[in-house]
Write a protein that binds this DNA or RNA. Structure first.
Length: 111
DNA sequence: CTCGTGACTTTGT
DNA sequence: TACAAAGCCACGA
């Protein structure tokens, strides 16, 4: 069969690379929007990473919860969302400080 | 082309 | 540690 790539916009390719990178974060580790952007070859496109995760197609199994901001905190707005993200990470062994932050020196990825 | 927006980041108090 | 301001970047009105 001829994998005829029916039209893949530049924006779509970029999004795929972002999701692929997020998907490569090991279980029990976390990364940041900025790092993901760099890893995916977006330079300073941290906000683009956030945008990609914001409208995630449910059920694709992307470990969105392993992405935190540069200070090690959740950037998800709704309190319920923050709690869900934290629960998922704690279930993998990630530890949160009293101020609700994750030590990136210890759980950050890539090392 | 200019403006406003946003799961961001860096810098300066 | 916390907050504000400015920087940054793709998008869409």
């Amino acid at each position: 069969m001829r994998t005829v790539e029916p039209f893949t916009s530049h924006a779509e390719l970029r999004r795929e690379r972002i999701l692929a990178t997020v998907d490569s974060i090991p279980r029990g580790r976390v990364s940041t929007y900025g790092r993901i952007a760099a890893e995916a070859g977006l330079g300073r496109g941290a906000r683009q990473v956030g945008a990609a995760l914001r409208n995630l197609p449910s059920g694709r199994g992307v470990p969105w919860h392993r992405v935190l901001n540069a200070t090690g905190k959740s950037s998800v707005d709704a309190a319920a969302g923050v709690a869900r993200q934290r629960a998922l990470l704690e279930a993998e062994g990630v530890v949160f400080s009293a101020s609700g932050r994750v030590d990136l020196k210890r759980f950050g990825w890539p090392d």
